[in-house]
Amino acid sequence: MENLLKIKDLHVNAGEKEILKGLNLQINKGEVHVIMGPNGAGKSTLANVILNNPEYTRTEGDIIFENENINDLRTDERAKKGIFMSFQSPEEIPGISVQNFIKSAKVAKDEKPVRIFEFKKNLEQTMKDLNMNVEYSNRDLNVGFSGGEKKKNEILQMLMLEPKLAILDETDSGLDVDAIKTVSKGINMYHNENNGVLIITHGTKILENLHVDYVHILVNGKIIKTADGSLAQEIEKQGYEAYREEKANG
């Protein structure tokens, strides 16, 4: 299968503190990966560093996207290559409507003007699919949105921008059962054999209706175990304690 993302021996600092300590990960087209791990393990750091959040510094290692080393690319350049992240806490931006924002992002990515009519129709349909009130497309980006509305808005952007790799950073956290189902539905709508999904999560609810290829356990800045989808259920039951020990012994 064609390689999408490859991370080699990645070391990342937040300020002075090392968060990722030699992480390796490979995602091929058509695959769904899940990363689980205790708080502070470095899950969100991994998501953010793939998009070059200036809060974090890569000290060692490589990030390779579609066989191209993207270590030195800016955030927007990486996004244009086709990497998308659903933010854990999406920013509120007053004065820019959801619709105009997605349009601007699409223009930036495709480097050509969008057909307004087609775009609007597509946007409205996608919003309906995600059980979103279509009027939200005229509201300021995330301003005054509830937690669930913000997360759905992230999924909406994912579906509209059609990235090659979608990283979902705890998109399910803080959502009720119905909203999680909607998010799962969105992921299924998006996913196909030509793209990849990386889900960072604490829970398994979001995985129920998804076919998961790999589950990785991230502890203390490293992936310490990789297995198939059943690993998620195991974690759900047993927690991470066992893996912490495994690491200490190993």
């Binding site: 959040n53 927007d76 998308f84 933010f87 820019i96 924002f101 601007s104 992002a105 930036a108 921008l161």
Partner: peptide, 21 residues
Amino acid sequence: FYLMSRGLSEEEAKAMIVRGF
């Protein structure tokens, strides 16, 4: 960072925020 993660350049992102303001 949020706007850049959607493919807007830093300048476009800033300009967009100023216009929104």
